[in-house]
Each structure stands twice: as C-alpha cells, then as structure tokens.
C-alpha cells in the first residue's frame, strides 16, 4: 500500500528559550492511501499542530514530511502552496466561508486559486455540489444556509479539486448530532466510494470509532495507533480508479 504522507521524527517547538513549548515530540507516522485516520486527543495535546504539519500548513522544527515519498520540507513556499491546492482538501469546524459570496463562489475558490478557467471551474463546482446534494442552493448566499448546509458546502469546496487527502478539523464540532451524522456519512462515503484518504482531528470518540485507524496523542506524543478494520483493500482499489480520474483531469487542465 502506498504511503500518502509520512512523518519522520517530527518535533515542533513554539517560542524560544525560556518560553519554549514543545508541542510535538519525535512523531513518526505514515498515512496510507485510502485510510480513514482519526487523530484523537484532548485540547492542547498537539493533535491540531500535527494535522497542520501533515497538511503542510506549518513547518516542523525538526524532522521531515514525505509526500508520495518526496521530502516536502525542502520545497519552496510556492511549491507547497501548489501541492496543498492540488492534493489536499480542508474541512474546518468553523466552516470558514466568505459569508457574502454565493455558495458557488465559495466552492470554486480552490479552482480560482489554481487558475482554472471560468467555465471549467463552474462545471466542477456544480459537480461537487451535486455530491453533497446542494445543487438547489448554488446561487444562495453562504450566510443564508443552516449549519449543516454550510458544512456540506465546505465539503464540496474540499473535494472540488479532486484531492488525494481530506483533512477535517472537528468537522461535526459545531453541529447538532443529527446533522453531524449526515456530515459524517458524507465524509465516509467519500472515503469508501471515491477512495479519498480521510484524516479527521477530533476529541469525539464516537466519530473516531468510525475510522479504520485511530491515532491517540497526548502531550505531543503518539500514545496508541490502532488499525480497527481491514477493509482497506476495497477502498484502495477504488482510490486507484479516482486517482486515474484525477490525473486525467489534471492533464485536461494543462
């Protein structure tokens, strides 16, 4: 199985000298293609920091990150931005939508950044909105939506660029349990049907249980790493199909 992201001896220290605070200590972690990984820990455990470093939003103080076997710590900012734009999708607890823009505008933002043409990005954004079942809200303003709808828009935004990995930071944290379940279903659907690798940061044990791997963090260290179910093969084969589609799409864009 392919390693999508590999972390080697990650250490992250915030601040300097006396005020220095070690958020992560010597973390070694490999994320495989098609996995759904929950990173679980209390607040302040370092789980968010780990996710940020894995998602190339932050650089580690020591250690390296390999993306598809390539060392990302040696890449320039520009290349990191490109990698993040093409390979990763993000779902945040607080949604982070441009409130005054339409649903469509919000969804196609990553494609705009990727310099895709007007027609193409609209077409792909509509496809993404179809997957999250929000085609009817295309022209609505983001503010007019309910919490669950907002998170579905964010998922559409996260998948619009056909990412390899989706990072979800407490995706159900701001939602009631019923809408939270719908969002969870949607995310795991993407994982199972489309083979997208899922990395969920959460303190919600129920959500963590749904993942096939649970990584527990405490005080900046991994205290347990359990693979719960072994239905990865199926997901991986699915992933290969979508990967082929992704490459094809990427070629079309060029």
């Amino acid at each position: 199985m392919n390693k999508v992201i590999e972390a080697k001896n990650l250490t992250k220290i915030y601040g300097k000298k006396a005020a220095a605070f070690t958020a992560l200590k010597n973390i070694n972690l490999s994320i495989y293609e098609g996995e759904s990984v929950a990173i679980v820990g209390k607040s302040g455990s370092g789980k968010s920091t780990l996710m940020h470093i894995l998602a190339l939003l932050d650089r580690p103080t020591k250690g390296e990150i390999l993306i598809d076997g390539k060392n990302a710590s040696k890449l320039k900012n520009k290349e990191l931005n490109k990698l993040r734009n093409e390979r990763f999708g993000f779902v945040f607890q607080q949604f982070f939508m441009n409130a005054n823009d339409t649903v469509l505008e919000n969804v196609l933002l990553p494609l705009k950044i990727a310099k895709l043409g007007r027609k193409k990005r609209k077409k792909e954004a509509l496809e993404a909105l179809k997957i999250v079942d929000l085609e009817s809200k295309v022209k609505n303003k983001a503010t007019d939506l309910s919490g669950g709808q907002k998170q579905r828009v964010c998922i559409a935004r996260a998948i619009v660029n056909q990412p390899q990995v989706i990072f979800a930071d407490e995706p159900t944290g701001n939602l009631d349990s019923a809408t939270g379940d719908k969002i969870t279903d949607l995310l795991f659907d993407l994982n199972k049907k489309h083979g997208v690798t899922l990395i969920i940061v959460t303190h919600d044990e129920d959500l963590a249980k749904l993942c096939n791997r649970v990584v527990r963090i405490s005080d900046g260290k991994i205290i347990s790493d359990q693979t719960v179910r072994k239905d990865l093969k199926k997901a991986a084969s699915k992933k290969r199909e979508t990967e082929a589609a992704r490459v094809k799409k990427a070629n079309e864009r060029k």
Partner: peptide
Amino acid sequence: TREIGLMKALGMGRSK
C-alpha cells in the same frame, strides 16, 4: 484575516 488564512490554506501564494 480569516479569509486570508483560508486562501493561504487553499494554496494562494504570498504574492497573490
């Protein structure tokens, strides 16, 4: 600020 953060997370470069 948050919008800028989001744009950066989604891969928008400094110069842009």
